[in-house]
Design a protein around this nucleic acid. Sequence first.
DNA 1: TTGATTAAGTGTAATGTAAACACTTATATT
DNA 2: AATATAAGTGTTTACATTACACTTAATCAA
Lengths: 219, 219
Amino acid sequence: MAYEPPRIAVTTDIVLFTIREGVLQVLLLRRAIPPFINVWALPGGFVELHEALEDNARRKLHEETGLDNIYLEQLYTFGALGRDPRERVVSVAYVALTPADDLHPEAETRAGTVAWHRVDPLPALAFDHAEIIAMARQRLVAKLDYSTIAFQFLPPQFTLSDVQDIYEIIQGQPMDKRNFRKWVLALDDLEETGDYRTGHHRPAMLYRLKNPDLVRITK
Amino acid sequence: MAYEPPRIAVTTDIVLFTIREGVLQVLLLRRAIPPFINVWALPGGFVELHEALEDNARRKLHEETGLDNIYLEQLYTFGALGRDPRERVVSVAYVALTPADDLHPEAETRAGTVAWHRVDPLPALAFDHAEIIAMARQRLVAKLDYSTIAFQFLPPQFTLSDVQDIYEIIQGQPMDKRNFRKWVLALDDLEETGDYRTGHHRPAMLYRLKNPDLVRITK
DNA sequence: TTGATTAAGTGTAATGTAAACACTTATATT
DNA sequence: AATATAAGTGTTTACATTACACTTAATCAA
């Protein structure tokens, strides 16, 4: 007599962060179907039988935003009883980061309304998605300190002030300009492009990442 | 027409570490049934429909070792296609820590032979369990540096040298005794018991944790 | 009982890292 | 031509980390 294991619905949920309007924002979908109809929720969906977990997360994100090839890392797996009112669902949550400019979500998609929302305050959220976003924020804040994750918020070319803005926004406190620039250049992950961004002030050197897709642990 | 999500077998795998014989060891079971019959594997098993993920991990660990109330944290979720030859299986991996003395696995249990194994070198392992153990080791080494996780390897009373031994074994390098003691006492997580451990040398003060079950982030 | 062995216990000086701090420069705007 | 704006740049101080050696109290063996 062979043991037949229970089989459980598995989903991914993606916490896609960006920096917009000077604050941290997260991508949410207004649900078009029950449960939690018309309530904001994280993008994601059921994992197919022949689909790897991360592939599912990337696919769902692509379907709902058009985004491709962005930074994505597994966050945590949420499997509490009752987190979905329909049936037992285990959800593998991911954190994703993108520069704001890369995405102007169309107002309407198949899944409903897609929009950026400030993380403070968040609207009412479906399922345990508020908890998932809270954990994702913690991870983001922690990784800022010991990795080069922050650059994933930036377009291919950026100024040192752009970088400092990311850190100040996420950490919620100003940093010393000279110390910051010394520190960020000492990482040795940046190189000058030779181009400048002009404005009605002194032009700023544009930098790029030496390895654009590499997120490195710095300590 | 309602969408019917695919349903997938979900397991936990537990990487239970201890320090024994002066090295890091991991608890393995020799599988008594296919697939991978007679091959060493991590403890764990299928998640029941009405069982929380962590509850399943604790239950399996208890069934296979008798251990209760030990330190356990979620590590990562492994969901690659083909990682189980029978069918699609998503596995939520946990890291657990215990003092060596707390467990003398009986040679035979229902699930097969249970034994401690050195992590260097590991025997051949079933499924992707070598990969899981590798990630668990990385997590352990990293957390040693920014949390009080190391104390979970120690019995209720221990000397400062016992603590230093844990760090030296896991990090694989000696540390300065005076600096280490200053640092560990500065954590302010320890208190003297007033008792001493004697040997054929000067007696050593026994310490205890102020909060035995608390693993704290230290930076 | 005495000497040898073992691990416990203890402080200071040197080095390296992080933090504090203010003015000059180059563009756009009026 | 004057003003406004953000870019760019070094040095000093404080703090944290590292390096380093001898004394003490027990057990064991002669």
